[in-house]
């Protein structure tokens, strides 16, 4: 137990600096203060080394995951649908821990949502994946890597830090590698769009590597591929909204289809190139279509099994 009286021991200062320097973003003036403290006394560097080692110790990562699993309390409030997935995940985990550690792949799971569905999936390592409608993921947890293959759709990942097992997402030709972070991946026909909400993500696409930090967005085949967005707000679809900032109609249709039970199609490709802007309430596709009719002169035709758009 630490009392206020000995709060200023060098050991405590070292712990304080480990706390400060483990921030995801350390501003330059703080880093300068840290260097001053480090050179202020010969024992500081050693004490910092000890404390940082305690923080980085793989045993601590394991201890934290186990304590969290024992507490039996969900990490975040989950929806009813997610609880079902949590059970599936935990059964898979139990089977895995009985098997020899070399068995690879260790943990296999497929997650799928239909149009309009929304699924929050906590994984046994503390990672949480939220699937938007019309999304399909294959999850392979091995001893070396945690791999999620994104086949279609859009998902929000809140990835648990595990230095020994990098978390990798394969989305078409784009590969996204993560270290403890939260981000959104949108699989568009042209490729993936990756938006980083927290931490640090490395994207490999078309032979190029991009390092993304919070607020950075990568769009495959985009010109330019890198842009910025407001990372303090949650992804729109998690609340059922889509903020269109001068996007082609084809993109908005893509988003509508994640929510609409009846598929929406463009009669001609040219219609898809119409540029639209505005805030659309995707969880009510009829309302979005009405807005397009009124605002952009888009003709909406309902056939038996689909909705056709043209102008």
């Amino acid at each position: 137990m630490i009392h206020a009286a000995d709060a200023e021991t060098p050991e405590m200062q070292a712990a304080y600096w480990v706390a400060v320097m483990s921030e995801p973003d350390v501003p330059p003036h703080v880093e300068r203060q840290f260097e001053l403290w480090m050179s202020a006394a010969p024992e500081h560097a050693g004490l910092y080394a000890d404390c940082l080692a305690a923080y980085d110790a793989p045993a601590l990562g394991k201890a934290l995951t186990q304590v969290r699993a024992q507490s039996g309390r969900p990490w975040l409030p989950y929806s009813a649908a997610a609880a079902a997935v949590l059970v599936t995940g935990l059964i898979g985990w139990g089977v895995w821990s009985l098997r020899p550690p070399s068995a690879e792949p260790a943990h296999l799971m497929a997650l799928t949502t239909g149009p309009g569905e929304h699924l929050s999936a906590p994984l046994p390592d503390g990672t949480r994946i939220e699937l938007s409608g019309g999304t399909e993921l294959k999850i392979r947890y091995g001893t070396k890597r945690r791999v999620v293959e994104m086949l279609r759709g859009e998902a929000y990942f809140d990835v648990a830090h595990d230095v020994a097992r990098p978390f990798v997402i394969a989305a078409h030709k784009t590969e996204i590698e993560v270290v403890g972070t939260a981000f959104n991946t949108d699989l568009l026909p042209e490729g993936a769009e990756v938006s980083v909400y927290r931490g640090h993500v490395r994207v490999r696409d078309a032979g190029q590597t991009h390092d993304l930090l919070a607020g950075d967005r990568f769009t495959a085949a985009g010109t330019p591929p890198l842009s910025h967005f407001d990372a303090s707000a949650e992804p729109d679809w998690r609340s059922g909204w889509f903020e269109a900032d001068a996007v082609p109609l084809s993109r908005l249709v893509e988003e509508i289809n994640r929510f609409s039970k009846v598929p929406v199609r463009l009669r001609h490709a040219a219609t898809g190139r119409v540029i639209v802007s505005g805030r659309y309430h995707l969880s009510d596709p009829d309302l979005v279509l009405k807005a397009l009719e009124n605002g952009y002169d888009i003709r909406v035709t309902r056939t038996g099994d689909m909705i056709l758009l043209d102008r």
Partner: peptide, 11 residues
């Protein structure tokens, strides 16, 4: 502490 060490969240 978990939020910092596992999730990498800022203060």
């Amino acid at each position: 502490f978990m939020r910092r060490r596992i999730e990498g969240q800022s203060c």
